[in-house]
């Protein structure tokens, strides 16, 4: 994660613009902000190189039958397993969020499922097989009231 990068007002405006539509051309952003295409290009390069932003294609959850955000609260066999267990969870493509936790669990992982069977299969066939996993509690987040997809963590 890039903590040391100072962002000025122009950076914030560019980030805001790309947060609405990242397919917009450098020339168009430049026109809107009254800056040259070259300025936008070098600003963007700096933002990408320093991992301040990344561009992603977000698919609408309404394409899923009944999107449920499953919070998996995972307990490790022993404290020394936490680090490797979290790293292994992060490698699972279906899991979109992994963090080691202060409170509630050793590790929190999140995945999107469409029904209970899918969750059961995923827990038994994938999560339970990861070394170090002792126990998984879960809560199911239904009907998204809000999800600001513009946030992420750009980790190695």
């Amino acid at each position: 994660m890039s903590k040391g990068v100072a962002l000025d007002e122009i950076d914030h405006k560019i980030i805001e613009r790309l947060g609405i539509d990242a397919r917009v051309s450098n020339r168009e952003i430049g026109r809107e902000l009254g800056l040259t295409e070259g300025t936008i290009r070098s600003r963007l390069k700096r933002l990408f190189d320093n991992r301040v932003i990344r561009v992603a294609a977000i698919t609408n959850t309404s394409r899923l039958r009944n999107p449920i955000l499953a919070y998996l609260w995972i307990e490790a066999n022993s404290a020394s397993d936490i680090e490797d267990m979290a790293a292994a969870l992060a490698k699972v493509p279906e899991i979109g969020f992994v963090a080691t936790m202060l409170g509630r669990a050793d590790v929190l992982a999140m995945t999107l499922v469409e029904n209970g069977n899918e969750l059961t299969d995923f827990l038994h066939q994938t999560v339970d097989r990861i070394p170090g996993v002792r126990r998984v509690r879960y809560s199911l987040g239904q009907n998204f009231i809000k999800h600001d997809f513009r946030w992420c963590a750009l980790v190695d």
Binding site: A87, H147, V155
Partner: peptide, 9 residues
């Protein structure tokens, strides 16, 4: 370790 929401309403 990972936070990449590729699905969203």
């Amino acid at each position: 370790l990972k936070y990449t929401p590729d699905w969203a309403p």
